[in-house]
Design a protein around this nucleic acid. Sequence first.
DNA 1: ACACTTTTTTAGAACCATTATAAAGTAGAT
DNA 2: ATCTACTTTATAATGGTTCTAAAAAAGTGT
Lengths: 132, 132
Amino acid sequence: MKYIEKLRNSGLRPTKQRLQICEVLFDTEKTFHFTINDLANKIKKQLNNKISLATIYNTVHAFEKKGYLKQIPINSNQTYFDTNVSDHHHFYDLKEEKLIDLENSDVGPINILKKINGKKIKSVEVLVKLED
Amino acid sequence: MKYIEKLRNSGLRPTKQRLQICEVLFDTEKTFHFTINDLANKIKKQLNNKISLATIYNTVHAFEKKGYLKQIPINSNQTYFDTNVSDHHHFYDLKEEKLIDLENSDVGPINILKKINGKKIKSVEVLVKLED
DNA sequence: ACACTTTTTTAGAACCATTATAAAGTAGAT
DNA sequence: ATCTACTTTATAATGGTTCTAAAAAAGTGT
Ligand SMILES: [Mn+2]
Ligand SMILES: [Mn+2]
Ligand SMILES: [Zn+2]
Ligand SMILES: [Zn+2]
């Protein structure tokens, strides 16, 4: 299993549940955006065994903390995550309620001119809302 | 009252509660960011009478719909609103959990190169996360 | 002022995503 | 095999937000 190493190196024990969640999240060609609910459904469909919701939450948060997932800042009652952890931006289609990746190259360089004393920039994220 | 007209023109009846919320929100020199909970506390402190939480929610949503308030896209369990409805951006201080305005002039011009068929851009919002 | 309609406020219930709990299970070390 | 720390799990609790439906207030016409 290719994820055993990855988990071990992160100080996470490679349990059956974590490995299966890795498969669902990272064994795809393309990266994708999801909510916990999306992920739970995907797991139910792809896997024959059940993983408790608490474990899904725990695992997603553990992976996020290790940098294998990113949270996307957006106003929604559910939290959105991204398997694309590269530095990039998003369209948000208001009608469809869907996120679309916007690569850094699709956005001109962003230069933050204002400085805040004693603070440094950790990330710069652009959200472009779309309407019809 | 200067807000009576404003509310009438928006098709909102100028009730005592709405006028009082207007005072708390718009009678200040500076614009500010708030959650519903912040606003409820502010109302409790500034006003002698009580406004029910349901009315605060209703009013904030009504004002947002009319464009007198903006929702700020951010990952939090609470929804953040802004009395600054101009086109602008935000710093988010992760340690202090505070938002700071970032005027358009503090950010270089943003050019979204990618186009989505049949959709047009409604807004472009930048969130700059700050750490120590 | 009064009657009538529509909108608004309100307390409280309901909703529901997320987090906490604590007991049972598992992984890794010795 | 034993021990210990970590993990999973079902379930309860939490808490922001929305819903409900009855009372109050606002607007309209007379
Ligand atoms: Mn979360
Ligand atoms: Mn809201
Ligand atoms: Zn993305
Ligand atoms: Zn602002």
